[in-house]
Write a protein that binds this DNA or RNA. Structure first.
Lengths: 128, 128, 128, 128
DNA sequence: GTGGTCTAGACCACA
DNA sequence: GTGGTCTAGACCACA
């Protein structure tokens, strides 16, 4: 299979369900373009084996991502990344990064840090 | 009750367990000092009613936060915020903000944004 | 349980999956108001027993209807019909009846019947 | 190929099996006479290519429609529409339109519409 | 082989 | 008791 390493990591001990963990990581891979538009995804069985989880769980993940519009599946053929180059995806990317930024700002402030503290931190983390 | 509005919001439809949602928000309120050291928390029943959830859930939350060292409970009196001005708390705050920053940086980059994009975004969000 | 007889009938031999059969009938019960707004639905286990199917199948049905906005579920409490008296539901009802009418008209014509034939048929069926 | 455009449309995302979707549309084309008696149908390969599905699926469809009496196949020559002008076909047409009407009436009523509402709707749709 | 549905049953979170 | 997640495994439709 020519798919790149998906680089999906699961925390089986987390309260966050593993299906949600996979969904979030796949969404990010698609939005970021690391999974190119039209690309065939790992088959349900392959991904299940490689993550050592049950095929049903992967099937649920794919079904829900299909409903959200991130991929399409076809009987007997496989699952494919939808076109992720359009303006809707670009907009979705913007929304996500803004949400992340807002969360970081809000929590950071709640912990007693100023915007400048947070910016300094980002630069510092970037240098590492 | 002299406690300020706790400003805890729950998403009942989320896959993230309600108890975890409450714990995370209480941790943040304590770390940030918005719940001052020594302050008495809402009683289990009060919080349960005000969040429209079962007292068992609140009891579990308090029990676990006590184990983590965020609260102490005194038989028959209630639960109280531990001293949140010490160096351990300060260190904990640093760890959390670094984790948040790392996450923001990682996800932001994955979505195709540079550190400078992210910093610009933080400034922009700060001005609003 | 005070729920009225749901009057859901399944055809286990159909190519149409039973989960889809249930979904369609529940949608209709909700849109028609026969399941009143806010009403608690049969529990997953109750409905599974009464239809002699697996609870997982009912859970899937409820989950998908929740995503479509027909009901909401709460951990440990149950599943509830959403407010079905609003204008959106009225509009949805209109859309559905128009689709049905269009389909009837199109297929009827394809079979060689005129609109008047179809109207006559409706009256005749109504008298029975 | 002199066959008219078959005008068969498939919904690959539907829970309704693709083979059933094709069968139903072919039945209607034959019953309606749009596929004239004795007419040669598309070859299995042609139809498969034009619908972007697997030849096995088309073969299965043709085999089942032959069993139902809608087609006949002649070794090495192809599939042909049976005579659709006889009384049996006329009767079949009647049964189908009655079923459609019954369904429209039942669902329409369930949604809160009267027979007169439905008749008015049919007239309105006919004018468009 | 690939996706989709369904059953059976364990286990957890919440009421 | 009630919903939610997950595993294990059968069986079907489609390629």
């Amino acid at each position: 299979m020519s798919l790149p390493d998906l680089d999906i990591t699961l925390d089986f001990r987390s309260a966050w369900p593993i299906s949600e963990q996979i969904k979030e990581q796949l969404r990010l891979l698609i939005l970021s373009g690391r999974l190119p538009a039209g690309e065939q995804l790992w088959s349900i069985r392959q991904l299940a084996v490689s993550l050592t989880i049950n095929p049903n769980t992967v099937a649920k993940v794919y079904r829900e991502l299909e409903q959200e519009g991130f991929l399409t599946s076809r009987q007997g053929k496989g699952c494919f990344v939808i076109d992720n180059t359009g303006p809707i995806i670009a907009q979705e990317r913007d929304i996500r990064v803004r949400n992340l930024g807002t969360g970081f700002l809000r929590e950071g402030r709640a912990l007693g840090f100023s915007v400048n503290d947070l910016i300094r931190l980002l630069k510092e983390l970037d240098d590492e």
